[in-house]
């Protein structure tokens, strides 16, 4: 993974409770960023991390996997929308166009994206790429 060379280890997570601290830290560290792309294999914890990121941002809804609907929308206690994408079952980039992705990614609202590899070329400039890797049961988070 060449991309990892340009990234730094941001955190290591060995228990699910530690995601809360990680989420607070991520939102704090990238206050001006609204689009976050999460890379990592199936089961590594992308949806779990997004659950905690949403919780940090004040979402009280159930944060569930959007693999089938492709995008879930949540509302924070401040009545702001958050978009949670999962491009897992996308086959062609045309499907991303069909979705009207620009209206979401350039909305100024928080967007969390699972399987961003599927639309790499369409990711907005300045979006934060988070890489998650399972190393012997511990999750290494690089940004």
């Amino acid at each position: 993974m060449d991309m990892l060379k340009e990234t730094e280890v941001f955190a290591k997570v060995s228990a699910v409770e530690e995601y809360k601290e990680l989420s607070d830290k991520l939102i704090e560290a990238f206050q001006n960023v609204r689009v976050f792309a999460l890379y990592g294999s199936m089961g590594v914890g992308k949806t779990t991390l997004i659950k905690y990121l949403c919780s940090t941002l004040g979402v009280a809804d159930i944060v569930s996997s959007p693999t089938f609907p492709i995008v879930n929308e949540y509302v924070t206690t401040n009545r702001e929308s958050i978009y949670h994408f999962d491009f897992y079952r996308i086959k062609k980039i045309e499907e991303v166009y069909d979705l009207g992705y620009e209206e979401y990614l350039y909305s100024g609202n928080y967007c969390f994206i699972e399987w961003p590899e599927k639309l790499e070329a369409l990711l907005p400039e300045g979006c934060v790429r988070i890489y998650m890797e399972d190393v012997g049961g511990e999750r290494i988070i690089r940004v």
């Binding site: 949806t47 569930s64 959007p66 693999t67 089938f68 609907p69």
Partner: peptide, 30 residues
């Protein structure tokens, strides 16, 4: 139960429905 949903719904009438249980992460179809 579908690719996107897993819910137990209490149906009292054609339009009186309450979700009494649902998935907190992946759907059953997923």
């Amino acid at each position: 139960v579908s690719g996107g949903h897993t819910q137990i719904v209490l149906v009292k009438d054609f339009f009186d429905m309450t979700v009494i249980g649902q998935t907190i992460d992946d759907a059953a179809g997923e």
